[in-house]
Design a protein around this nucleic acid. Structure first.
Lengths: 360, 360
DNA sequence: AAAACAACCGTGTGCGCACACAGTTTTGGT
DNA sequence: ACCAAAACTGTGTGCGCACACGGTTGTTTT
């Protein structure tokens, strides 16, 4: 195929005008059955593909994607999906895609509900959001399904309600992987702790899945008789209280030789541990945020599991755009790789985030 | 900014015609200094950005990117950069980008030189290639620099000659990482082998870098007194000879408890090893090709390091396109992450390769 | 039979830009 | 002063598509 097939070529071959071809193409206006069949046959024969460039120019439209993400001033982790989202938006700006961002307090459903109301009062073409609050998020999804607004989710997966897609990690298998990585540092008869430094209101399903995966790893794979200790502390921003809690936990569970921190806050754990304890305990955490990176470099953290938050934001937008503009089929569940990060390879992941704006 | 700024808006504001604005924009034809300054000032004031969509349509041009990759029938690894390249080409097809692919024999410089001649006899707008043969590749790069043909390299990095970019792995640090990953399975006083199942003619620099990185890891990080054993075998396609060689190597170096295979052919090593030996020796290899994946699943390979070959092909093309179409600055050296692959996370990397066509 | 309505269709215009071409102004030479 | 050439500029056209609008034909109603 040397020359791109145009609707003019289709029209000539089918013996109709370009207006008729356009009407068949867009299922618009009236076209006789006879003309329709002729046009469709020629399109198929010539393998016609619309010129998205010309279509975009002619349409001269603006499509708005509203985003609803946790406020990154509450938790630095959320700067990263925002970064990925912004880079994707930059890449597709010339297609007339614009964004209206909304933020909510990670620990306050009121702010989430307020933002949802604003979004639905002036509905966009599509929504990208992080479903931190299960019940409220399901309501948003149901309403969007009713209004046929495509929704892409990141970070947390909600099933049983229709959405365009989920882009994020598989929390169960991140728990399995955490088990595997901790296992390298464990000997026969020692104990491993799974530590949740998070609030009860957020991501309960994630927590359960990670723990289950972690336990299943040791049940099914490790022959070292490892005891699993579960631990959780909500007031992780209270330094003294957290320190007391950690010290007490380590005293109570003296066989613990590995800790799997299931949120991005492994650094808060390490802030509370004495050097001697750190030498004897391997720590596996999540996410390449600055305080974690410093401890990884100091080998106080053995592994970080990268949830690819930048890519979540990026691909969330790209999937929406692919659906809206290119009429692409979208895979409903898209798990991102569970990157294993050590001091020797972390640099490349950090560079990757910076280079995202090279992608069209 | 509610409405996109057009050249018409610039023209009105500067008191000239759109033809003059176009001439200033493209440094074409004649424009008086006075008009030029006015136009540039308005452009800057209004933060004008050309509409790439309209520009592409008006230009109605075809840009050809020639690719020069090793023949994937010789080595299955090379199917993957080809796949990434094809997906990128698909994504940018509507910009009028076409591809002419050339393939060469991985172990025969003649085929490479023949392909180079064909490319240069009918020069494309840009070239994507894998510089397997150092000397011949440098000649190609010098000629392209002379003719101002942008070249993107993947898999092997050639410095000191001008090119658009290199997208690939950092071979030194992949050696370092290999050392780290093997170190998990090693005890005091044991030995680690670095095994090269490759031909002398290919990628010598890569080999040297990986080995150096591997050695440096143990020198600088491991306190276990690990002896490093270097081993290489060229006739890796001769099953009996390879088996004899491996058996002899394992007899000679009985303290070897870990083997780092520095090409993608770890599976060939495992084909030659007896079950008993496999239980005592950890193996770290490269690349998610089918035979390796099977052994990873069977836990005969402990880790694979993913060189991201699909992404190399993909980003090689995307960088060229960004440069040609969007006049983007391209980062000259782009190292891809060194993914650590275990049985528990491999699935996500495989799925990622399949989903690439969702990206615009 | 005439009028009204619906189905159907072709034509024209515009989206923002690239660039060819012809007209106007300026400059240089005689 | 006159002429030719060069510099400069505005205008028109086309890229492929989306879609509004008016004209034609066929059908239904009066």
């Amino acid at each position: 195929m040397n020359k791109r097939i145009r609707i003019k070529d289709i029209a000539e071959r089918a013996g109709v005008s370009t207006g008729t071809v356009d009407r068949v193409l867009h299922k618009r206006g009236n076209v006789s059955q006879k003309a329709k069949e002729k046009v469709l046959a020629v399109m198929k024969d010539l393998d016609y593909e619309p010129n998205i460039i010309a279509s975009t120019l002619a349409l001269n439209r603006t499509l708005r994607i509203d985003s609803l993400l946790p406020d990154f001033t509450t938790d630095v982790y959320w700067q990263q999906p925002k970064l990925g989202m912004e880079k994707a938006l930059q890449a597709v700006q010339h297609y007339g895609i614009i964004n209206r961002p909304y933020y909510f307090d990670l620990f306050d459903t009121i702010s989430f509900k307020k933002a949802v109301k604003k979004i639905l009062d002036d509905p966009p073409e599509a929504i990208l959001f992080a479903p931190i609050f299960l019940e409220e998020s399901m309501k948003l999804l149901e309403e969007c399904a009713r209004r046929k607004i495509p929704v892409a989710m990141i970070n947390t997966d909600i099933r049983n309600v229709k959405s365009l897609c989920y882009v994020g990690q598989d929390s169960y298998h991140s728990g399995v992987l955490g088990g595997k990585l901790l296992d390298f540092g464990l000997n026969e008869g020692e104990a491993a702790m799974i530590l949740n430094l998070g609030k009860e209101t957020s991501n309960a399903k994630h927590v359960i899945n990670k723990e289950q995966g972690f336990r299943d790893y040791f049940t099914q794979n490790s022959s070292k008789n490892i005891e699993i200790v579960k631990s959780a502390f909500e007031d992780f921003d209270q330094q003294e209280e957290l320190k007391n809690y950690i010290m007490e936990q380590l005293r109570t569970h003296q066989h613990v030789r590995g800790i799997f921190v299931i949120n991005s806050r492994a650094y808060k754990l390490i802030n509370c541990m004495e050097s001697a304890a750190l030498k004897n305990i391997k720590i596996v955490g999540f996410d390449l945020i600055q305080p974690n990176l410093e401890y990884l470099q100091q080998n106080k953290i053995s592994f970080l599991i990268n949830q690819n938050p930048v890519q979540q934001g990026y691909l969330g937008i790209m999937n929406i755009v692919g659906h809206l503009l290119f009429k692409k089929e979208v895979e409903p569940i898209q798990y991102l790789p569970l990157d294993i990060i050590v001091n020797e390879n972390v640099e490349y992941y950090l560079q990757r985030e910076l280079q995202f704006d090279l992608v069209i």
